[in-house]
């Protein structure tokens, strides 16, 4: 589904990604962990060309994301992206945030779009908040609306960029529950997170990144409990 082929990314003289390779198969859940600044957010942002790359290739379903002539807007509809800071549209209600893409991009009728949006809101437990403006919602609720907004476009892959890092601790659970449910239903996803309990539960594979490279990868149970990966263990201790 997604392939990284020795991806290089530079910010001026600073190398953010150094020859990252890897593959995410359909239905797989990958969790990216690593200290801040290691390039894990940058890596998932390359998948929808939110970040341009200077070397290597990123393929989605066999299509080179950076190639000339790729319809990037069409591709982005197929790859959902959830941001750390939610990025809901503050001038639209919760349901308006979701129907915007449906009516303007999918050309759905208003009634059909509303129905679809309500179904997505119900899926994340927020059907009752449909008409609220984002400013009136809690952080956890906003992030769940953001997830519903992405899901409404019927993505084949979901990318999560630290979806719970901006939340108060008591709201982390509700957002993780929504993501877990997606994983259980077979959604392909890459999730950048510091929640190791979540990684252990849902990840097929954990990639540990440092200085722009994936330095360890493996099944969560193997990685987290093993003493064979001293750098990862040191990082995990800083989280605890």
């Amino acid at each position: 589904m997604i392939q990284f082929e020795s991806v290089d990314k530079w910010y001026g003289a600073m190398q953010a990604l150094a020859g990252v390779s890897g593959e995410v198969r359909r239905g797989e859940v990958k969790v990216l962990v690593g200290p801040s600044g290691c390039g894990k957010s940058t890596l998932i942002r390359t998948v929808t060309r939110l970040e341009a790359i200077q070397g290597g290739r990123v393929l989605v379903d066999g299509v080179d994301v950076g190639a000339r002539g790729v319809n990037i807007n069409r591709l982005r509809q197929r790859v959902g992206f959830v941001f750390q800071a939610y990025n809901l549209f503050p001038h639209l209600s919760a349901i308006g945030n979701i129907t915007l893409g449906l009516t303007k991009l999918r050309k759905m009728g208003k009634a059909e779009a509303r129905e679809r949006a309500l179904a997505e809101l119900a899926r994340v437990g927020l059907a009752a908040k449909a008409e609220e403006m984002p400013g009136k919602l809690s952080g956890g609720q906003r992030q769940r609306v953001a997830i519903a907004r992405s899901l409404a476009m019927d993505p084949e892959v979901m990318l999560f960029d630290e979806p719970t890092s901006a939340l108060d601790p008591e709201m982390v659970g509700e957002v993780l529950a929504a993501i877990k449910q997606l994983a259980t239903n077979g959604m392909t996803m890459i999730c950048v997170t510091h929640e190791m309990g979540f990684a252990r539960e849902v990840a097929d594979e954990v990639w540990f990144m440092e200085r722009g490279a994936v330095v360890e990868r493996g099944r969560p149970a193997d990685l987290i409990n093993s003493s064979a990966h001293p750098r990862l263990q040191r990082f995990l201790r800083t989280l605890a």
């Binding site: 807007n73 982005r76 509809q77 941001f83 549209f89 915007l100 893409g101 991009l105 907004r149 992405s150």
Partner: peptide, 21 residues
């Protein structure tokens, strides 16, 4: 800028992101 990014991520082009968001 994140507002523009969010709109682009849903699949809007430059004009759509500008006009609707």
């Amino acid at each position: 800028k994140a507002q523009n990014e969010a709109a682009r991520s849903i699949g809007f082009g430059y004009l759509g992101a500008m006009g609707y968001v």
